[in-house]
Protein backbone atom coordinates (compact mmCIF):
# COMPACT_ATOMS: atom_id res chain seq x y z
CA UNK A 1 0.00 0.00 0.00
CA UNK A 2 1.22 3.45 -0.81
CA UNK A 3 -1.52 5.52 0.76
CA UNK A 4 0.11 5.58 4.19
CA UNK A 5 3.75 6.00 4.99
CA UNK A 6 5.94 6.40 8.05
CA UNK A 7 8.04 9.52 8.05
CA UNK A 8 10.84 10.68 10.34
CA UNK A 9 11.86 14.28 10.47
CA UNK A 10 13.16 17.00 12.74
CA UNK A 11 10.71 19.65 13.88
CA UNK A 12 12.05 22.60 15.84
CA UNK A 13 15.09 20.51 16.68
CA UNK A 14 13.16 17.48 17.94
CA UNK A 15 13.11 14.14 16.13
CA UNK A 16 9.58 13.11 15.19
CA UNK A 17 8.29 9.93 13.61
CA UNK A 18 4.68 9.32 12.51
CA UNK A 19 2.65 7.28 10.11
CA UNK A 20 0.69 9.60 7.87
CA UNK A 21 -1.69 9.53 4.97
CA UNK A 22 0.37 10.30 1.87
CA UNK A 23 -2.00 13.03 0.78
CA UNK A 24 -1.78 14.96 4.05
CA UNK A 25 -0.15 18.33 3.57
CA UNK A 26 2.76 19.33 5.74
CA UNK A 27 0.58 22.11 7.15
CA UNK A 28 -2.08 19.69 8.33
CA UNK A 29 0.59 17.34 9.65
CA UNK A 30 2.13 20.08 11.76
CA UNK A 31 -1.23 21.38 12.95
CA UNK A 32 -3.25 18.27 13.52
CA UNK A 33 -0.74 15.45 14.01
CA UNK A 34 1.86 17.37 16.00
CA UNK A 35 -0.45 20.00 17.52
CA UNK A 36 1.78 22.80 16.28
CA UNK A 37 -1.17 25.03 15.48
CA UNK A 38 0.89 28.18 15.10
CA UNK A 39 1.24 27.46 11.39
CA UNK A 40 -1.94 28.75 9.78
CA UNK A 41 -3.77 28.05 6.55
CA UNK A 42 -5.10 31.07 4.72
CA UNK A 43 -5.58 30.03 1.10
CA UNK A 44 -4.25 26.51 0.54
CA UNK A 45 -3.03 27.48 -2.89
CA UNK A 46 0.33 28.97 -2.09
CA UNK A 47 -0.41 32.67 -2.40
CA UNK A 48 -1.21 34.13 1.02
CA UNK A 49 1.90 32.81 2.76
CA UNK A 50 0.30 32.27 6.18
CA UNK A 51 1.49 28.64 6.20
CA UNK A 52 5.11 29.50 5.41
CA UNK A 53 7.59 27.45 7.42
CA UNK A 54 11.32 26.84 7.15
CA UNK A 55 12.44 23.61 5.52
CA UNK A 56 16.16 23.03 5.90
CA UNK A 57 16.49 26.73 6.63
CA UNK A 58 14.57 27.91 3.59
CA UNK A 59 11.01 29.11 3.50
CA UNK A 60 8.40 26.88 1.93
CA UNK A 61 4.62 26.83 1.71
CA UNK A 62 3.49 24.04 3.99
CA UNK A 63 0.16 23.93 2.13
CA UNK A 64 2.01 23.03 -1.09
CA UNK A 65 4.26 20.45 0.51
CA UNK A 66 3.15 16.96 1.39
CA UNK A 67 4.05 15.68 4.81
CA UNK A 68 5.77 12.71 3.16
CA UNK A 69 8.05 15.14 1.36
CA UNK A 70 9.32 16.35 4.73
CA UNK A 71 10.59 12.84 5.49
CA UNK A 72 14.22 13.20 6.57
CA UNK A 73 14.10 16.97 6.46
CA UNK A 74 14.41 19.61 9.14
CA UNK A 75 11.38 21.83 9.71
CA UNK A 76 11.21 24.98 11.80
CA UNK A 77 7.95 26.62 12.79
CA UNK A 78 6.89 29.62 14.84
CA UNK A 79 6.76 27.46 17.96
CA UNK A 80 10.53 27.03 17.88
CA UNK A 81 11.51 30.67 17.61
CA UNK A 82 11.52 31.77 21.24
CA UNK A 83 14.00 30.49 23.79
CA UNK A 84 11.61 29.33 26.47
CA UNK A 85 9.81 32.49 27.53
CA UNK A 86 12.41 34.75 25.95
CA UNK A 87 11.21 36.05 22.65
CA UNK A 88 13.66 36.25 19.78
CA UNK A 89 14.78 39.72 18.67
CA UNK A 90 12.47 39.39 15.68
CA UNK A 91 9.47 38.45 17.81
CA UNK A 92 10.24 41.33 20.18
CA UNK A 93 10.51 43.70 17.22
CA UNK A 94 7.02 42.69 16.13
CA UNK A 95 5.71 43.79 19.55
CA UNK A 96 7.70 47.01 19.57
CA UNK A 97 6.82 48.02 16.00
CA UNK A 98 3.18 46.87 16.10
CA UNK A 99 3.92 44.29 13.44
CA UNK A 100 0.75 42.30 14.04
CA UNK A 101 -2.91 42.81 14.68
CA UNK A 102 -4.93 39.61 14.32
CA UNK A 103 -1.75 37.54 14.30
CA UNK A 104 -2.99 35.06 11.72
CA UNK A 105 -0.43 35.86 9.01
CA UNK A 106 2.30 36.46 11.60
CA UNK A 107 3.91 32.99 11.73
CA UNK A 108 4.45 33.07 7.97
CA UNK A 109 5.83 36.59 8.18
CA UNK A 110 8.26 35.50 10.90
CA UNK A 111 9.46 32.57 8.79
CA UNK A 112 10.04 34.77 5.75
CA UNK A 113 11.89 37.46 7.68
CA UNK A 114 13.97 34.81 9.43
CA UNK A 115 15.26 33.57 6.09
CA UNK A 116 15.69 37.14 4.87
CA UNK A 117 17.86 38.14 7.81
CA UNK A 118 19.89 34.96 7.52
CA UNK A 119 20.49 35.73 3.83
CA UNK A 120 20.80 39.48 4.05
CA UNK A 121 21.47 40.76 7.59
CA UNK A 122 21.10 44.43 6.67
CA UNK A 123 18.26 44.74 4.16
CA UNK A 124 16.84 47.98 2.83
CA UNK A 125 13.15 48.75 3.19
CA UNK A 126 12.69 47.94 -0.48
CA UNK A 127 14.35 44.55 -0.06
CA UNK A 128 12.18 43.78 2.96
CA UNK A 129 9.05 44.65 1.00
CA UNK A 130 10.16 42.47 -1.91
CA UNK A 131 10.68 39.51 0.39
CA UNK A 132 7.28 40.10 1.97
CA UNK A 133 5.60 40.11 -1.43
CA UNK A 134 4.80 36.45 -0.90
CA UNK A 135 2.98 37.01 2.40
CA UNK A 136 -0.41 38.71 2.59
CA UNK A 137 -1.48 40.70 5.61
CA UNK A 138 -4.93 42.24 5.71
CA UNK A 139 -4.60 44.13 9.02
CA UNK A 140 -1.40 46.12 9.25
CA UNK A 141 -0.90 47.63 5.81
CA UNK A 142 2.54 45.94 6.12
CA UNK A 143 4.03 49.01 7.73
CA UNK A 144 4.59 47.57 11.19
CA UNK A 145 5.90 44.35 9.69
CA UNK A 146 8.45 46.17 7.53
CA UNK A 147 9.49 48.27 10.52
CA UNK A 148 9.82 45.13 12.64
CA UNK A 149 12.07 43.45 10.08
CA UNK A 150 14.31 46.50 9.89
CA UNK A 151 14.42 46.89 13.67
CA UNK A 152 15.23 43.22 14.17
CA UNK A 153 18.06 43.50 11.64
CA UNK A 154 19.57 46.30 13.68
CA UNK A 155 19.20 44.43 16.95
CA UNK A 156 20.72 41.28 15.51
CA UNK A 157 23.68 43.27 14.26
CA UNK A 158 24.16 44.76 17.69
CA UNK A 159 23.06 48.17 16.50
CA UNK A 160 20.18 48.54 18.93
CA UNK A 161 18.31 51.68 17.90
Amino acid sequence: MTDRMTISLTVNGDAVSREVSVRMTLADFLRHELGLTGTHLGCEHGVCGACTILMNGRTARSCLTLAVQADGQSIDTVEGMADGDDLSPLQQAFIDQHGLQCGFCTPGMLATITELLNTNPDPTEHEVREWLSGNACRCTGYQGIVDAALAAAKTLQGKVP
Binding site: G49, T52, T59, L64, E115, L116, G134
Partner: peptide, 9 residues
Amino acid sequence: VGHVQTRNR
Protein backbone atom coordinates in the same frame (compact mmCIF):
# COMPACT_ATOMS: atom_id res chain seq x y z
CA VAL B 1 9.56 34.09 -10.95
CA GLY B 2 7.07 34.04 -8.07
CA HIS B 3 8.42 34.76 -4.64
CA VAL B 4 11.37 33.60 -2.59
CA GLN B 5 9.15 31.08 -0.85
CA THR B 6 8.01 29.51 -4.13
CA ARG B 7 11.42 29.71 -5.83
CA ASN B 8 12.87 27.81 -2.88
CA ARG B 9 10.80 24.80 -3.95
